[in-house]
Amino acid sequence: MISGELVIDLLLGGGAVVTAVLCLTAKDLFQAILLFISMGLLVTLAWVRLGAWDVAIAEAAIGAGLTGALLIATRRQLNQ
């Protein structure tokens, strides 16, 4: 019997792995960065599922938000 919670866990964990693979195989750098941010948000939800609320808040603000901003700023420098 597959419960709903197991499906959510599988989707979150599998989604994180799939976005990580897509991020590393993406042709365009901007695409890769966006996929990395998406992975950060999926992982944030995984932290919530695991009951790590403090880590989830930090990951949403730093892991997904700030790292993404830094990466995009660097990409803009590289394109100039």
């Binding site: 990580a20 750098l29 990395f36 790292t67 990466l71």
Partner: peptide
């Protein structure tokens, strides 16, 4: 690619 290496380390 260096940027993707950095992404990979983060992963």
């Amino acid at each position: 690619h260096v940027m993707k290496k950095i992404l990979a380390i983060n992963i």
